[in-house]
């Protein structure tokens, strides 16, 4: 079997695996948000940036190649990741104390993991639409981080409910229905797309506080200590 090294640890990989796939299989955590092993990699959040043979690369898209020397859990990379996470926080409107997803949110969990204690950057206070038109689902664009997971999951569901539109800082999530509202789309509460959101942008109505805050997934465990499935909310 072929091998790469991550922070000095020898990690085996199979032909065709990306760096993050090899790392996950070996129990090495690389922080990420837009990556989910169920779907084709996207490579947009850049949290999984690692240093491969001296150059930065995106671990979720970059193929593992025999003999690569990968730096992952370094002070510099974790600092950059913290700053990228802070960028996501100030770009949208993420107010953890009042968010139903608090404790189960991957964005928040990655923030905890990276020891993020403030937002650092000035807030954008973006005006984003909230869509409560669906009987079972709520779409709160204030919390969308453009990970594209709902888009990919909906395609895998055999539907095409979500898409990303707009350019640059005006990027936003849109819904495929005549009115543009979720209630008029063909999404169903049982779709994978309804449950894939790493933040609180897509929520199932009536379930917000079934598990009390304080007893949730990331309230007592660092995301890096969880299995790949648990990290992504299973």
């Amino acid at each position: 079997m072929s091998h790469i090294t991550i922070d000095g640890q020898v990690v085996p990989f199979e032909e065709g695996q990306t760096i993050i796939e090899a790392a996950t299989a070996a129990g090495v955590y690389i922080p990420h948000l837009c990556h989910n092993p169920e779907y084709a990699p996207h490579g947009s959040c850049k949290l999984c940036t690692v240093n491969v043979n001296g150059r930065n690369a995106t671990a979720c898209t970059f193929p593992a190649v025999e003999g690569q020397t990968v730096c992952n859990n370094t002070e510099e990379l974790n600092f950059d990741r913290k700053r990228l996470t802070q960028m996501l926080f100030v770009e949208g409107n993420h107010f953890c104390p009042s968010c139903e997803k608090s404790g189960n949110c991957e964005l928040q969990a990655v923030g905890y993991h990276l020891n993020m204690l403030d937002n650092h950057y000035p807030h954008f206070f973006a005006l984003r639409d909230l869509d409560s038109s669906h009987p079972d689902l709520l779409l709160d664009r204030n919390r969308c981080i453009f990970c594209n997971l709902c888009v990919r999951a909906s395609h895998a569901d055999g539907k095409d409910v979500f898409a990303i539109a707009g350019r640059g800082i005006n990027k936003h999530l849109i819904v495929n229905s005549a009115s543009g509202n979720l209630g008029d789309s063909d999404i169903n509460v049982d779709d994978r797309a309804a449950h894939i959101c790493p933040t609180g942008a897509i929520l199932v109505k009536g379930t917000a506080f079934k598990v009390p805050i304080g007893q949730r997934r990331y309230d007592h465990h660092d995301i890096c200590d969880m299995s790949a499935g648990e990290q992504h909310g299973e």
């Binding site: 947009s44 850049k46 990228l84 960028m87 996501l88 100030v90 950057y121 000035p122 954008f124 800082i169």
Partner: peptide, 21 residues
Amino acid sequence: FAHESCGFCTPCRVGTSLLKK
């Protein structure tokens, strides 16, 4: 650059606007 960023990745999308500010 802030105007022309495509918005795909976090550092360029948010970063070019922060840089501008």
